[in-house]
Amino acid sequence: MPIDTREVEKIAELAHLKFDPQELERFVGHFQQILEYFTQLETVSTGAVSTENVQYAHQAVEGKNRATPMREDEVRSSLPVATALDNAPESSEDHFQVPPVIE
């Protein structure tokens, strides 16, 4: 299915990205080419096939059930606030600082 500039702009909005007109033009071309290649997937018959993930392959191998591994809900120490703020572009007191959200 063809994709146009407007559609790409809409996706960019969802992804919190922006492109200048030249970038956008190049992008649409590549996007189109890649999506065309993906159309080969339509030819594969996948009626009743499951979408089960491989993430728990090791459990499958061992014949265990695939429930999400759980741990005890115990209070544990976490990163000290000052350390967590070390890489912040802007911070104030014990907080990350961002542009005003409320007028």
Binding site: H16, K18, A84, N87, A88, P89, E90, V98, P99, P100
Partner: peptide
Amino acid sequence: VRYGHRSADQTDLDSMFKSTR
């Protein structure tokens, strides 16, 4: 917000996200 580059080209939170990325 928490780490990495932050753009100076911003007027609000949304434009900060977009410009940064």
